[in-house]
């Protein structure tokens, strides 16, 4: 089976102005040579900390930011070469759900306009048929049909996130890029939204590119996981495999740093030194080497390790 989404050597570099007199030329490599694939009906989680490039990667796949180089194929079509008209058409099949349910919904629009916008743009429904479809979508995400005539401020964070999901579902997409969709929600509300995402996937065969920093949520939802550090994928494997055995020292640090809701499980951590380096001046060799307990001088600070082959891929000279 051909994967639904394939990204090959995808990079997004942002030019940086370093001062009034600078000549430019410096770039931040927000996403640097990332390859990934997502099958229909599958969830690939992208995990990592602030600034690792995971959100930029999600946006680059949809061309909400322009990739600097590399290829994105969606159902066989080269997304990176499409003109705006063709891209708009393809976006019907690739949607996005955002983290902040407060800023991602236009406060001046009614829920009918928000959820129905895609249907109108893609000329999928109008008039009474549009209302009926919006009503069905609201019911599907667990909101009353009469929510249609209200505006976002009338809803709680969890309800707004349901509106955002209904908006994404409206055009019957095959893939939804979910950027931290539950991180602004309380844990009891998060559980409701996660249940909804799982149900929708089973029912509609949706694929998710699920961007998150929350490893509990990722373990619950993901079929496969890719860990990013400073713009690159450092480990990629089926969820069961990566949670059983972390091969990259950064993955180990990340997993062992996450607090566990079990007071009996307070445990030793793999402490890593310092903070993530600035993407403006990435370290030589392996970007993780200055913080890595396993780094070998003369090797890790000189040469960048390549990502090995699947199924449990790792970019490290001394993996576990």
């Amino acid at each position: 089976m051909t994967p639904l989404l394939v990204a090959t050597g995808l990079s997004v570099h942002f030019p940086v102005s370093t001062g009034l007199l600078s000549r430019g030329g410096r770039v931040v490599r927000a996403v640097d040579d990332v390859s990934l694939s997502v099958d229909a009906g599958e969830t690939l989680a992208i995990v990592g900390e602030s600034g690792c490039g995971k959100s930029t990667l999600g946006r680059a796949v949809l061309r909400l930011v322009e990739p600097t180089s590399g290829l994105v194929r969606f159902d066989g079509v080269d997304v990176t070469r499409l003109d705006q008209a063709a891209l708009r058409k393809l976006r019907r099949r690739m949607q996005m759900v955002f983290q902040d349910p407060y800023s991602s919904l236009d406060p001046r629009m009614t829920v009918r306009e928000i959820v129905g916008e895609g249907l109108v743009i893609h000329r999928l429904a109008r008039g009474p048929a549009l209302d009926a479809r919006v009503g069905d979508l609201l019911a599907r995400v667990g909101l009353p049909r009469d929510a249609m005539s209200r505006r976002p401020h009338a809803f709680s964070g969890g309800q707004r996130q349901r509106i955002g999901i209904a908006r994404a579902l409206a055009v019957s997409p095959d893939l939804i890029v979910c950027d931290e969709p539950t991180s602004a929600l309380d844990v009891s509300v998060q559980a409701q939204v996660l249940n909804l995402l799982v149900e929708l996937q089973a029912e509609l065969g949706l694929a998710y590119l699920f961007i998150s920093h929350d490893l509990k949520v990722v373990e619950h939802l993901a079929h496969r996981v890719a860990v990013m550090y400073l713009g690159r994928v450092v480990e990629r494997a089926p969820a069961a495999s990566i949670f059983a055995r972390r091969r990259h020292p950064y993955t180990e640090a990340l997993l062992s740093a996450a607090p566990v809701p079990d007071p009996g499980a307070r445990r030793a951590r793999l402490a890593i030194a310092g903070e993530p380096p600035s993407p403006l001046s990435p370290p030589s060799g392996c970007a993780f080497h200055p913080r890595c307990p396993r780094a070998v001088p003369g090797r890790c600070d000189v040469e960048a390790p390549a990502l090995t082959d699947e199924p449990h891929a790792v970019a490290c000279f001394f993996p576990d």
């Binding site: 844990v187 009891s188 998060q190 559980a191 996660l194 509990k216 949520v217 373990e219 619950h220 939802l221 993901a222 969820a239 069961a240 949670f243 059983a244 566990v260 809701p261 079990d262």
Partner: peptide, 9 residues
């Protein structure tokens, strides 16, 4: 309602 640790295993 917290996603349980070790569910994937």
């Amino acid at each position: 309602s917290i996603p349980p640790i070790g569910a994937s295993q």
